[in-house]
């Protein structure tokens, strides 16, 4: 197992804040909108540098999505900022009609996604956002894993014409990917080559997958770990290439079991190369108040949960071999 290290723990939303300033410098058409959450979204530096290219919308997310769609008419590249819950569920119809169906160049940037929002509880911990966004035609769905990758993704999406959902989080997490990486939408990243099981992880769960890989190594299981930062379009080729070698897979995400990365991978496998798959995700339930670590443990989203899923899927693979013999 390859060694992964990090210098600091830092939140992915800060990667968005830094990336937005950089995107603004690179392209004068980049504009920002926020629904009364400038501090939470780390948009302050962008506003300081580009005050005329920022629009405070107040607590009115539906209007924010419509404004953003309108701003694209005239060539602007709007980045909207609010919590993931208010970026998706609250405004699904506005996104569907004014952004996705209308193929508008809007970047919906969503912080505080998933359980790791923590103490605010289930009203704010959206676990359905990936599902809602990936169902929309034309929509690109990105869920980067750390600060550096979120920054790179934030810069990269300005160069992709069309609607994008960029999902990131609140807690400080290991910042382990390369500093000035180039972000390629739709390109899965092979983090560790392995022969026994493919682990496909997204967002905060990528680091958990790395920790799981280390534990599995001690148990004699050689895990291949792949960072799926783009859930749509999904890197089907990378997924199939990996499972053709390992013959079984685990997916890991901070999202409902329905509608997320695991479901997308299940579709790829079922249609191309049916194999045992275990999905590490929240099992059709809402979250609750607690610290991020407590919640990730209670709802089964830790390295240990990935390890258990990997061992189970390796057993299933063995059982299938026996059957076929």
């Amino acid at each position: 197992m390859k060694k992964f290290t990090f210098e600091e723990k830092i939140d992915t939303r800060s990667g968005f804040g830094v990336g937005l300033v950089e995107a603004g410098r690179l392209n004068s058409n980049v504009v920002g909108l926020c629904a009364d959450l400038i501090g939470s979204l780390k948009m302050g530096d962008f506003i300081k540098e580009f005050p005329d290219r920022f629009f405070q919308v107040g607590i009115a997310e539906a209007n924010m999505i419509g404004l953003a769609a309108g701003l694209t008419i005239g060539g602007k590249i709007p980045y909207t900022g609010t919590f993931a819950n208010f970026s998706t569920g609250r405004v699904f119809d506005q996104i569907r009609q004014s952004v996705s169906y209308s193929e508008k160049n809007v970047k919906i940037c969503a912080s505080h996604a998933g359980l790791t929002l923590g103490e605010d509880g289930a009203t704010h911990q959206i676990l359905e956002d990936i599902g809602m966004m990936k169902m929309l035609p034309h929509m690109v769905v990105i869920n980067p894993c750390d600060f550096n990758q979120t920054k790179a993704a934030t810069i990269a999406i300005a160069n992709h014409f069309g609607p994008v959902y960029l999902r990131f989080g609140r807690p400080a997490v290991p910042n382990f990917t390369p500093k000035d990486q180039k972000f390629e939408i739709g390109k899965a990243l092979l983090l560790n080559e392995g022969a026994d099981v493919s682990i496909f992880a997204t967002g905060h769960m990528v680091w958990e997958a790395i920790k799981a890989g280390e534990i599995l190594e001690q148990k004699g299981i050689d895990a291949e770990i792949i960072n799926i930062h783009t859930i749509k379009p999904l890197d089907t080729a990378a997924i199939l290439k990996s499972v053709q070698k390992t013959k079984c897979a685990v997916s890991a995400e901070e999202h409902q079991i329905s509608g997320g990365l695991g479901e997308s991978i299940a579709q790829v496998l079922a249609r191309n190369y049916p194999l045992p798959l275990e999905i590490v995700a929240v099992n059709d339930t809402f979250g609750e108040s607690g610290t991020p670590d407590q919640l990730m443990e209670k709802y089964g989203l830790t390295a240990n949960d990935i390890v258990k899923a990997a061992m189970k899927v390796v057993e299933r693979k063995a059982a299938m071999k026996t059957l076929s013999v």
Binding site: V31, D52, R53, F55, A62, N63, M64, I65, G66, L67, A68, A69, G70, L71, T72, I73, G74, G75, K76, P78, D93, Q94, R96, Q97, S98, Y101, S102, K104
Partner: peptide
């Protein structure tokens, strides 16, 4: 046609956004 409409209530937001793009331009 510059944007889809039909689900009501969205056009004013879009128009205001387009008006602000005009000002920026």
């Amino acid at each position: 046609i510059r944007i889809a409409s039909g689900s009501l209530g969205q056009g004013l937001s879009v128009a205001v956004g387009a008006a602000q793009a005009k000002k920026l331009n």
